[in-house]
């Protein structure tokens, strides 16, 4: 089952509620720069102002509900493999246009296979290269999806 740090379920639940409530207040504050209009002609700011306050209230309500019902249930909130996998995905998304598909996904898939499977480094690199090549053939060559090339032309 899941490893990694565990958090009280209610604490995580309350934290999500509070973060969203804070986000709602920021959204409401940003909506102040949009014209609210009048009752007979509501402007682009009217709906966001209402939404910002409603998010703040509902988020606080969720946090209060979690705090009132606090129990001993825990949840693994940051499973190390999932976090590493997510970080690698984020890096691949950022590098995709700059480094191109083949280099980015060769590295991404090799890393993921090494992280998630019991393959050694050399086999993970080979599997990553093979899978990247197969994906390139299917999407670029067969389906005609325009995948980006890197600075070295591929």
């Amino acid at each position: 089952m899941a490893g990694g740090p565990r958090a009280r379920m209610w604490a995580g639940d309350a934290a999500v509620g509070l973060v969203l409530a804070a986000g709602g207040l920021v959204y409401w504050w940003m909506a102040q720069s949009l014209a609210p209009g009048t009752a007979a002609a509501p402007g682009p700011g009217a709906f966001p102002r209402f939404l910002g306050l409603a998010i703040a209230v509902a988020g606080t309500g969720c946090a209060a509900r979690a705090w009132l019902a606090r129990d001993a249930e825990t949840v693994a909130w940051a499973e190390p493999r999932a976090l590493a996998s997510a970080a690698a995905l984020a890096a691949a998304c950022l590098a995709f246009e700059t480094l191109g598909f083949l280099a980015t996904f060769g590295a991404f898939l090799s890393f993921q296979f090494r992280l998630l499977s019991d393959l050694g480094t050399a086999r993970a690199l080979a599997a990553g290269a093979g899978a990247t090549g197969a994906l390139w053939l299917v999407f670029e060559y067969l389906l005609g999806v325009g995948l980006p090339a890197g600075p070295w032309g591929f």
């Binding site: 996998s85 995709f96 898939l109 993921q112 296979f113 994906l135 999407f139 999806v145 325009g146 980006p148």
Partner: peptide
């Protein structure tokens, strides 16, 4: 899942990119 998850993630990236070619 060790092989499936990364491959599906790669397909997700390609799928989203192919809509507007937007990083």
């Amino acid at each position: 899942m060790a092989y499936l998850a990364p491959a599906v993630m790669a397909i997700c990236v390609i799928g989203v990119f192919s809509v507007k070619a937007s990083g």
